[in-house]
Each structure stands twice: as C-alpha cells, then as structure tokens.
Design a protein around this nucleic acid. Structure first.
Length: 366
DNA sequence: AAGCCGGGGAT
DNA sequence: ATCCCAGGCTT
C-alpha cells in the first residue's frame, strides 16, 4: 500500500491532543498498569460514559492485582453485573491469578507477555503498553479504525479481516517513536469527539487539510457499515419460584450467554410450571401468576421473556440441588444477575412491597 | 471467515 | 429501528 502521498500525522495529532483531548477521565493521569488494564478491559465495546461508575467501584474494591486475584469469582462478577460481555470479568480475574503465579504479582512489561494474558488482544496490549510503559505499539480500536478509514480512504467494513489487515498496516506505518501515550490518546479522543460516526465535526479536525474522505466528500459513507443480517428471535418462560422471602436462582455455567451469573430457571413457552417444579425439584407450587413480560435484545438474537411467579408452600430436602440456590430476595437483587433478571426480581419486590403496604393499611384500619 | 458474547448511548 | 462502542475468543 502506498501511503507516501500522505504527510505524517502523529505530530499534528499529539499537538491537538494537548490542547483539545480528554485529560480528566478516571483512568488517566496514572501509569499504574493495573489501573490502565482494568479500564481498557471495561472499555472494550463499551462507551466511556457507561464505564466510569463501574470502574470507580471496581478499583475501590480491587485496588491491586493481588486483591483481585484473591477475590472470589462471585465477588468479581457482582462488580461486573450489568456491564455485559462477562467473559471479560472472568478473564480479568484469571489473568490476575496468572500474574500472581507466573509474574511475581507484577504486571509484565513485555508486549508479548501482556498479549498472552487472557482477554488481552493486540490492541488492548498496545494501549496498556503505550500508556503504562511508553512502548511504541499501535492501537486499533473502533475510533482509530474510523479515523484511518476516512483519512486514508479505506473501503469495506473494518470488521472484515482483509480490511482490518490494511488498517493495521496503516497503524504500524503511522506509529511514532516518541510520546506514544499521547499519540494513542489523541487517536481515541479524535475518534470519540471529532471524527464521530454521524455528523463529524470536520471543521475542528487537525487533519482536515488532507483527509481523503473529506476531499472526496465521502465522510458520511466511510467507514462502511457492517453488513446486517436479520437476527433470530427466541421465546422463553422464566419461572420465579418463591418460598417466603426467598427466590430460586440457578448459577449459569461459565461458557455461553450470561456465563457465571445467577439466573432464573427457564422453561419453554407452553411448558407447565407446576409439572416442571414437581418433576425437577419435587416441589408443589401454587398456580403460577403472570408477573411481567419483557424483550431483551442481544447482538445476535432477540429474547422474549415471560416471567411467571409460582410460590411454593413447603420446601422438601430434595429441593436443595447443587447449582441451585434459594436466595433472600433483597440479597438476590444485588447479586451478579443479567439485566432482565434483575428487572424481573425488582418487579417482584415492588409487588410484594405493595402487598405488604396494603396489608399494613388494612391492619391499621382494624 | 464467521459466529459468539451484553448492554446502552446516539440518532 | 438501526448502528456501534478504548474487542477478543472460539469454531
């Protein structure tokens, strides 16, 4: 690829960053590789605004590699609950334990060693290397892909391997050998605040004089968007079994959707709740009551959930199956749950609270 | 190369 | 309703 007719951009970007970039995010103004690592993992496929609160709580609870490595998976997952892509949390936890066992509890400084840790790919390893250690490794996240696709007129969807390969080559060619952290931050900040997806602010861009897409009037069509397919839809029934103030939850396996989180038992749509409770748990449930319906959209499918509430009067011993847990409702709501499950339990809590208040009012009248 | 893995912000 | 976000891992 011939990039010779493009002037170097690093110096302009670095100068722009010092004046117009972001400087006060919670994970900036530190060279602690642990803090930078945690932020980079949280920021994978997740916007800055969504991360800030999670980051602060996570760092307060797990301030060091050692504290994270020593924590239970349950504790780690609880601090990730709601953020999505839960393999990130499991890999973060696992990588901390690897660092304790194989790197003397110190974050490795070698680029290959960093990238070898679970959950850290080339771009994340490069970001950590630049910010924490000043290594000249190019990053290539969504922001950088957009900036380069426009500036260098790269056609095709950046998720396509052939297109991504071109973009990595550009990233390598543009990579400066000084001020690596500032340069990486400049690319991200330019993409996040100026070279945004829709209606970019080209008049404020330090690269406007020689941007390929701007000169060709192709800014709005680059980068090419992902070819979209219709996603399948699934319907499930989630059963909320309660005994007194406790609710039955099931720990999901690490692999698959919502891995490592607590969830509700799932039945097929027409499946009979009472029969299911009797067969799998040996429980006699009351007639199930419709609690709520909701639709949850994932990247690759849409899930229609019907939540039914079935109280059980007695709890025989065979109801204590491994992997299942009768959890007090107030505890369950703060556990590591998927978002729709938390919504269902909150609806149940609201309903029970309402019923309790009604009873109180009734008693007050007597 | 394509699929899997979440939840939310922006438009 | 659609796109995409400081992507990586598995098949």
């Amino acid at each position: 690829m011939d990039l010779s007719h493009f002037p170097p951009i690093a110096e302009r970007l670095i100068a722009w960053q010092k004046q117009h970039g972001r400087h006060d995010l919670p994970w900036q103004n530190t060279t602690d590789p642990y803090a930078i690592w945690v932020s980079e993992i949280m920021l994978q496929q997740t916007q800055v605004a969504a991360v800030i609160g999670y980051y602060q709580k996570f760092m307060q609870r797990f301030p060091t590699i050692a504290s994270l490595a020593a924590a239970s998976q349950e504790d780690v997952m609880q601090h990730w609950s709601g953020l999505g892509y839960y393999s990130r949390a499991r890999n973060l936890h696992k990588a901390a334990q690897i660092m304790m066992a194989e790197h003397q509890g110190v974050f490795p400084r070698d680029f290959e060693a960093i990238q070898a840790l679970p959950g850290i790919g080339r771009s994340t390893a490069a970001a950590i290397s630049s910010f924490a250690f000043g290594l000249p490794q190019p990053i290539l996240d969504g922001n950088v892909k957009r900036v380069f696709a426009r500036y260098f007129l790269v056609d095709g969807w950046p998720g396509q391997p052939s297109v991504e390969k071109k973009l990595w080559q550009i990233a390598e060619r543009m990579q400066p050998q000084t001020a690596m952290g500032t340069y990486a931050q400049a690319l991200m900040d330019l993409g996040a605040t100026v070279c945004v997806r829709s209606r970019p602010r080209c008049a404020n861009c330090p690269l406007q004089e020689d941007c390929g897409a701007l000169s060709m009037d192709r800014v709005s069509e680059l980068p090419a968007s992902k070819p979209r397919k219709t996603i399948p839809e699934k319907t499930v029934q989630m059963l909320v079994m309660t005994h007194g103030n406790r609710v039955l939850l099931q720990k999901r396996p690490d692999s698959g959707i919502w891995g490592g989180l607590w969830s509700l038992p799932e039945l097929e749509l027409g499946q009979d709740s009472q029969a299911w409770g009797k067969q799998t748990m040996g429980l006699d449930g009351h007639a199930p009551a419709s609690l709520m319906r909701l639709t949850h959209v994932f990247t690759h499918f849409k899930l229609h959930i019907t939540a039914n509430h079935m109280p059980v009067a007695a709890l025989p011993l065979q109801a204590q199956e491994p992997g299942w847990h009768w959890m007090p409702l107030d505890v369950a709501i703060d556990a590591a749950l998927p978002v729709p499950v938390r919504k269902i339990l909150q609806a149940l809590a609201a309903q029970q609270h309402g019923a309790a208040s009604a009873k109180q009012r009734q008693l007050a009248l007597v």
